[in-house]
Write a protein that binds this DNA or RNA. Structure first.
Lengths: 213, 213
DNA sequence: TAGATTGTTAATCGATTAACAATC
DNA sequence: TAGATTGTTAATCGATTAACAATC
């Protein structure tokens, strides 16, 4: 019943990876069919919401009384999320967080391949982090074009984030994943996802305060 | 006009830190008053939304025609977000990401002080990361109680995340900030914020695909 | 058959945006 | 005064949840 991808809500899209992780777990435990009720219980969600979300992704209907065939459902999710369709990306800012991301091989299973990093710091340029070369910033445009890169990760201090984003966009990058604490002004046709840890923290602190103070 | 904190929506709460960052920038540039229109333009938001958000936080009304007094507004935001009210926290999992967080001193300005880290890896236990000691996991309950810690950060591999969360809760921690790709089952009275990078990535990839494929 | 489960339509809830009176 | 701006009420939009017929 797979819907047109543009019709799937942002909220649904962001839940899909957690469904898939749960399905992998069930699969590892030898489960062969799964119901919306089971998924909902496992992830603290509403069963109706699970059925709606699954309907966006799955190519075959679930069976009343039994639920969904697990292997099929996993394949549908992987396919929908493009986990087998690897995309090359680059990263700018080989500092603490950049280093951690370069060292983390887990993005590969999400279909993300970090080709290289870029930095302005002489001390890291030319080095190798987890097998990934760190190049001088000035080489970014050339290599982005050569590799056909469309997604860039920003892990630089906030005061440099806008400048780096502008360089990425000029080089032809179409989507930016930023971990810098800075609002980026970008052309409307560039996709942007900003990880704002201060925002998360504000939410968590307030929950904590309202709960026990 | 400061509203009861529990009435402020999650969405508003998560925007507050980005407002404050923008206000700091204006202050640095010598600006003394700011209008909702200006903030909205700077952060790509709707001016009405800005006025509503500001009303949740500010203790004085804005002036028609001129806007808000910048210094006052900054103080109100800092106060509301508790940035001067430092909270001690601990972190479990001194791997790549944990290391990056321990090395990052920027959380201090958000009122977060990472006291120490815990791990099970013999190679990091006893070491010091950015002046913060790494202790054996078994010492967590004792130190959490001694220091009165109420917030814990989880940066362990996903297969250990639930176990670590259970240990934290048993030790008296009331809020968990998790970076592990795993849904955590927790008592209802524990606050949880899960940073799901796979979810962010799903959103970004889909924007990219719908835009240019 | 009876009962658990799916898929969908309708109702509700929450957040954003539009409209507008009040104000400096 | 005229005009820009605030603060609030009403309308809209989007996402979640409830209700329920269809189905194996």
């Amino acid at each position: 019943m797979q819907a047109d991808k543009s019709e799937v809500s942002k909220a649904t899209l962001m839940r899909l990876p957690s469904y898939l992780r749960y399905l992998y777990e069930l699969d590892k435990n030898g489960v062969t069919t799964v119901s919306s009720t089971m998924i909902a219980a496992g992830l603290d969600l509403n069963p109706v919401q699970v059925r709606k979300d699954v309907a966006c992704v799955s190519t075959v209907a679930g069976k009343p009384k039994t639920g969904y065939a697990l292997k099929e459902l996993i394949a549908d999710f992987e396919n929908y999320l493009g986990y087998h369709n690897t995309r090359d990306v680059i990263l700018v800012g080989a500092g603490g967080l950049g280093h951690a991301i370069l060292s983390y091989d887990g993005f590969k299973k999400y279909g993300l391949n970090v080709m290289a990093a870029f930095d302005v710091d002489e001390n890291v340029i030319g080095r190798d982090i987890n097998g990934k070369p760190v190049y001088e910033m000035s080489r970014l445009p050339e290599l982005v074009k050569r590799w056909g890169i469309r997604l860039g990760i920003i892990t630089v201090p906030s005061q440099s984030a806008q400048e780096v984003a502008d360089i990425m966009v000029a080089a032809g990058i179409k989507a930016i994943w930023s971990f810098s604490a800075k609002h980026l002004n970008l052309p409307a046709d560039i996709a942007l996802k900003h990880e704002d840890l201060a925002a998360s923290l504000a939410l968590l602190r307030m929950q904590l305060v309202s709960m026990t103070d």
